[in-house]
Design a binder for these strands. Structure first.
Length: 196
DNA sequence: CTGAAGATGCCCT
DNA sequence: GGGCATCTTCAGT
């Protein structure tokens, strides 16, 4: 398999374009017990200061959001109840934007995924932001990690043509921001998270 | 220090 | 369709 790592400047495009562009590329996690590769099939953009749904809305700068103010192409992980969620930091330094990875399709390392999420239909192992981090073994340890390095990075994958955009998921109390079409997904891909 | 809230998912009815 | 698990963060005392 061709494994061309996405260059630093890939992450420098505007956040909405980045969210769209990430679809089809392969997320690689070199887990201690083996390598897992999965194709990104669903993303959401969070536009920082001007986006009420973003943690960094209004320029809110805390320990948690700090990494979003830094270089694009780094990892913003955070905990949602019992789950870790994975974001890619976007926007130039000082502009706290990010792209949430919402769903992936396994390409390699199925045995490991089965180990992390046993007894489930394949589709149910990675069709959600909390599910995929568990399946790939991604934890809060990766907060601030650069995607230019091991053990977590993104390589060039496949072109995706049937992209659909729609409202983001799970942000009911964010006023106007609730309806912004900042969610992107491969329309025909069965691993896209279902609802909405 | 305490408590409330949350970009979720799973299990129950 | 509703309740709840279970963790971290952050604002308020």
């Amino acid at each position: 398999m061709r494994m061309k790592r996405l260059p630093k400047d890939f992450y420098e495009q505007p956040t909405l374009e980045l969210a769209r562009s990430l679809l089809g590329h392969y997320l690689v996690h070199q887990h201690p017990t083996g390598e897992i590769i999965a194709k990104i099939v669903e993303t959401e953009a969070y536009l920082g200061a001007i986006d009420r749904a973003a943690h960094s809305f209004g320029g809110r700068r805390t320990n948690r959001t700090e990494v979003m103010f830094g270089l694009p192409g780094h990892v913003y992980t955070y905990q949602m109840h019992t789950h870790t969620l994975l974001n890619v930091v976007s926007g130039p330094v000082g502009t706290p934007e990010a792209v949430l990875i919402r769903a992936v399709e396994p390409i390699q390392g199925q045995a490991l995924i089965d180990q992390h999420r046993p007894g489930l239909k394949p589709v149910d192992q990675t069709n959600g932001p909390g599910k995929l981090t568990k399946a790939l073994g991604i934890t809060m340890d990766l907060y601030g990690h650069s995607l230019q390095h091991e053990p977590l990075f993104i390589v060039e994958g496949e072109a995706v043509t049937d992209v659909e955009a729609g409202p983001r998921v799970g942000i009911p109390n964010t006023g106007e921001a609730r309806d912004y079409p900042y969610r992107f997904f491969e329309r025909t891909n069965p691993y896209v998270s279902k609802y909405r």
